[in-house]
Amino acid sequence: MSNLFKKIASKKSGARIALAIIAISIFTASVGREVYFTKVSVVPKKDSVASVKAFMQVYEVLTHPRCMNCHPAGDIPLQGEDSHLHAMLPKRGVDGKGVYAMKCSNCHQPTNSPGLHTPPGNPNWHLPPADMKMIFQGKSPRELAKQLLDPATNSHKTHEQLIEHVSFDKLVVGGWSPGEGRELPPGTHKEFVAKFKTWIETGAYVPSADAKAPIKKNR
C-alpha cells in the first residue's frame, strides 16, 4: 500500500506553540514528525488544532475496550466492557501469543466463535510482544500519541506504516466485528482511519500534558 502514500517531508521542530482552543488549552508539537498524504489529495496544511482534535478521536478508539483490552499495562490481557483482567490470566509471552497451554489461539479461533461470551476470533490473535508492549491502558492522550509516533515504542513504524497498520491490520479491523454481544469502538473503522490520517497528515501533533481523556459515555 505504500504506493498510495508519499513521504514528502521530514521535519524537526522543537518549538512549543501555545494556542487557545475550546477544549484544549495547550499542546505541543513534538520532535521527529514525518508527515504523509495520499497521492491524489491536496497536500494538507499543517494544522495543530485539527491534528490534536483528530488525535483525541483516535484516542477514544484506542482506549476503547476493543482496542485497549489487548494493549494492557501488565502482561495479562483485559476482557469485557469494563476491561477487567482476562479470566484465567493468560500471559503475554515473549511473542505476545501466550504461553504453554494458554496460547491465545488455543481458544481464539481464526473467526469469531458463535454465541455470546465465546472467544472472539482472528487468524493472528495476539498481544504486542514482550519487547514492544505498546501499552494503551492508563496512557494519557499525550503519552499515547508520543508512543505511537516514536519508532522506538511503536514497533519501528514509519508514519506511513502506522496508517497502513490501522487501515489494514486484521486485528485492528477486527475490533469492529468483535463477536456477538460486544460493544463497538466509537465510529466506524473507516472514520477511525480517516481521523488517524488527519492526525498524521495535519502534522501529527501531540496533545498537551493536561489534555484529558474524554469522559466516556455510560456503557
Binding site: M88, L89, P90, K91, V99, Y100, A101, M102, C107
Partner: peptide
C-alpha cells in the same frame, strides 16, 4: 493432563508460576 503436557514439552523445569501460567485455563 493435555494442558500440562504442553507445559512440560516447552518447559522441562517449570516453576509454580509457570504451572499457574499454563494451567489456569483448566
Amino acid at each position: 493432563i493435555m494442558s500440562a503436557a504442553v507445559l512440560l514439552r516447552e518447559n522441562p523445569t517449570p516453576t509454580d508460576q509457570d504451572i499457574d501460567d499454563a494451567m489456569a485455563g483448566n
